[in-house]
Write a protein that binds this DNA or RNA. Sequence first.
DNA 1: TTGTAGGCGTTATCAG
DNA 2: CTGATAACGCCTACAA
Lengths: 354, 354
Amino acid sequence: MSSPKKTMPSAAPPAVSMADLARELGVSMTTISRALSNHHSIGAATKQRVLKLAKKLNYQPNHLAAALRKGQSRLLGVVVPYIEGKFFPSVIQGIEQAASKAGFSVIVCQSHEDVQLERRNVETLLNAQVAGVLVSLARNTQEFHHFDKVRQRGVPLVFFDRIPPTEQVNSVVLNDREGAFQATRHLLEQGCRRVAHLAGPQHLNIYRHRRQGYLDALAAYSIVPDEDLIITSDMTTEDGAGATRQLLALPEPIDGIFAAGDSAILGALQVLKAQSIRVPQEVALAGFSNEGFTAITEPQLTSVDQRCEEMGQAAVRLFLELAAAPDAPFVQRQVVLQPELFVRESSRQGAPLS
Amino acid sequence: MSSPKKTMPSAAPPAVSMADLARELGVSMTTISRALSNHHSIGAATKQRVLKLAKKLNYQPNHLAAALRKGQSRLLGVVVPYIEGKFFPSVIQGIEQAASKAGFSVIVCQSHEDVQLERRNVETLLNAQVAGVLVSLARNTQEFHHFDKVRQRGVPLVFFDRIPPTEQVNSVVLNDREGAFQATRHLLEQGCRRVAHLAGPQHLNIYRHRRQGYLDALAAYSIVPDEDLIITSDMTTEDGAGATRQLLALPEPIDGIFAAGDSAILGALQVLKAQSIRVPQEVALAGFSNEGFTAITEPQLTSVDQRCEEMGQAAVRLFLELAAAPDAPFVQRQVVLQPELFVRESSRQGAPLS
DNA sequence: TTGTAGGCGTTATCAG
DNA sequence: CTGATAACGCCTACAA
C-alpha cells in the first residue's frame, strides 16, 4: 500500500496535465499549449517532442478547464420532449451528424413534456457552458423566460419543430400546413367527402398548422368544415380510438380521417377494424409523422414524412451561422422544410382487401 | 452603445459570479460559497442575506468551475448503441429518473454501433468530468482499452445489457438465457417440435445467452438441436425475412421460430403471411424485447420483456454504490433482472383466425 | 520562437 | 462563525 503524493479526498488517480508535460520536457506550459493546439508560432521539432510525450503519457485534455477559461465549450445542448418513436431520434441523428462534422459533441436532455424539467434542462446545459442550445418545446410550455437567459448569455438558441408562438426566434420547422393539406387533399382525391380531423393541442404550432392545412384542403374542394368532425386531443392511440368511436356515432357517416399524428390514426384503425369497417373502402385514413409502424399495420398507413434528419442538420447549420457572428444584431431566421406524403394502403382506393 | 468593462473576445454578457455577490454585500467569497452550499458554519442571518441577493441578481452557479475544482461533476454519462426502438429510450428513462432523484443530470451519447464513436464518446464524457459512465456496448466492440481510462481516473463504470465478455466489470443484465428458455419452452408447450432460432451476433453476451436458453429448452424436451434450424444474423427485419425463407426451403418443415429480437421475428411473420402460412397454427412465433409494434401486428407477437426501466434504475443504483466508496477495492458486482414472457396471438394455439 | 504571469469561478485549508 | 489564500487545468496578452 503506497500512500498518495498528497492528501486526496478520493482516490483520484494521476490525471496527467499540461504542467506535467512541461516539467517532463523542461519547457513552459505555453509551449505545451501551443504544440497541442497547433498554434503557428511553435517549432516543428518542439511540437513533435510534445506530441510524442503526450501520447506516451496518455495525456487527456481537460476540456472543462478550457471551457472555463474561454467561456465556451465544443458541446451542443439539445432539449427534446421525449425520445420514443421515430421522429426525435432521427432528428438527433441529424444533429449529431452535422455537429460532429463541425467538431462539436452533442448532449441530449429530455423534458418529458414538462416545462419544469425543460427549465432545469436548459439550466443544466448553460451551466455546462454549452456553445449552443437546440430546443423542441414541451407540450405544456406556454411561458418562455427560461430561454431569455440563454440569449442573455450570448449562447445561440435554435428551436425546431415545436417552436414558441410569438417570440422572435431562430427556428427550423416543417411546413406542417402544407403536409396536412397534401394528406387531406389526397383523401379528397380518393373520393372522400366527409373527412374528419384528429387534431392535437392547438397551442402548439405544429398542430395548429396541421389543422389549418386540413381546412385549406376542404376549402379547395369547396367543402364547408363541420365542427363535429374535428376532435382535439393529446393524440395518443387511446385518444385516437376514443375520437373515432365518437365519430362513428355521428348520424351522418364519415368516409375519411386525417390525424395530426400517427399514434392517433393507429387508434382509429384499430377501432374501425374492431367494428369491421373496411379501410380504405369505407373509411380512408392518413396520419402524420411516418412512424415506423405505419408500414407494419394492415392495411399500411398513409402518412406525412417530416424530413427528420434534414431538420436536425438544418438546426445545426443555423446554430453554426449564429455562432460565427456572435455580436451580430438579432435577425429572425426560419428554415422551412417541405414534407413528403407517403401514400399507402389505408387511403388508396382499389387497394387489395386484406 | 456602452463599451464593455474589459476586452471581451465575444459579446459575453455579465454572468454574475460569487465574487460579485461578495463585493455587493461586503463579505468574503468564502462566506458566499458557504451560504450557497448550506455549510454548517454560517450565520443564519448572513445566509439569508446572501440567498436573497443571489436570487435578486439571478446568480447562476458555474458548475464547470466547481467541477474543475472538485474534479467531480453531478453529471452522469451514458453511452448507448442507438436510441431508436423501445429498449434504450426506456432504459434511459429509468436512468434519468433514478439519477435525478440522486441529484445528477444525465447526458446521453450514441455510439451508432461503432467502436470508434464509442471511444470518442467515452473521451467526451471523461473530459466533461462526468461522475460516472454507464455503457451498453456497440455491436463491433471487441477491444476494451478505452474503458481502462475510465477506471484509471477513478470514475465509476457500469455496463448494462451489452457487457464485455471477460473483463472484471460491474454490470446490470437481463437473464437473457432464462428469457429465451421461457419463450422456447412456451413454443414447445404449444405443441411445436421443430423450433428454429434466429440468433444474433454471438460475440455479444445477450445473443449468446439467448441462444443458450433456446438450447436449454430443447434439451428439457429431449430434442436434439438441428444446426440447420439456427440461423445467425444481425437481426434486422430483412435478416429475419431472409432467414425465414431459408427455413421454409428445408425439406422437413418447421413449426415454430424463436428469434432473439423482435425485428427479426417481424420479418419472419411478414414472409409467412406472404406465403399464406398460418401463424400460429402452422408456424408459431416468439421474439425478444417486447417492442411496441408487437402489439400492433396481426397476429400480435409473443415476446420477452426486458424490464427496461428497472435496468436503468439498477445501473444508477450500482453507480451510486461505487461512487459512495471511491477507495474500496474492486469487487465485481452484477445485477441480474428477471425477464417476463408476454404471450400473444403469434404463439397461442387456439387463437382466433384473422 | 519561447517564457512569465494572471485569471476564468469555485472550493478547501488554514488561520483568526 | 468568518476571511485570506491557494489551488483545479487551461489559455493568452505581453514581454523576452
